[in-house]
Computed example of a mutant assay.
Amino acid sequence: MTDSSATVRPDRRAELAAGLATVRARIAEACGQAGRDPADVTMIAVTKTYPAGDVVALAGLGVTDMGENRDQEAAGKANEVAAAGVRPRWHFIGQLQRNKARSVVRYADVVHSVDSVRLARALDGAAAQRDRPMDALVQVSIDGDPARGGALPGSADPESGLDTVAAAVAEATTLRLAGLMAVAPLGWPPDRAFARLAEIAEAFRSVHPGATALSAGMSGDLEIAIRYGATHVRVGSALLGMRPTLR
Rank of each mutant, 00 (worst) to 15 (best):
F204S: 15
E171T: 13
D163F: 09
V207W: 05
T212L: 04
A184V: 05
P190Q: 08
G217D: 02
G210H: 13
S215K: 02
W188R: 06
M218R: 00
W188I: 03
G179M: 11
P190R: 08
R205W: 07
L175D: 09
A178E: 03
A213F: 06
R176A: 06
D191T: 13
E202K: 15
E199Q: 15
A184E: 06
T212S: 09
F194D: 01
T173W: 06
T173P: 04
G179I: 02
L175M: 11
E159A: 09
A167M: 10
A184T: 10
L162H: 08
P209I: 02
A166T: 00
S206A: 15
L177Q: 02
E159D: 11
A182E: 11
R176W: 06
P189H: 06
S219I: 02
G161P: 10
T212K: 09
T164C: 03
I200H: 00
M181V: 13
H208I: 11
A211W: 03
A201F: 01
F204K: 10
A216H: 06
A184L: 00
L177I: 05
V169H: 10
R192N: 03
D191W: 04
G161V: 10
V169Q: 03
A168M: 09
P209Q: 07
T173I: 01
P190W: 03
S160E: 12
P209V: 05
A213Y: 04
T212V: 12
A203M: 06
A195R: 05
L177P: 01
T174I: 01
G187N: 14
A178R: 15
A172E: 09
L162S: 06
A167G: 07
V165S: 04
P209T: 08
P209R: 01
L175I: 00
A178S: 13
A216P: 03
A170Q: 14
S219Y: 03
G210N: 01
S206L: 12
L214K: 15
G210S: 14
L186T: 13
G210D: 03
E202H: 15
A193D: 03
V169P: 04
R205H: 10
L180Q: 07
A170R: 15
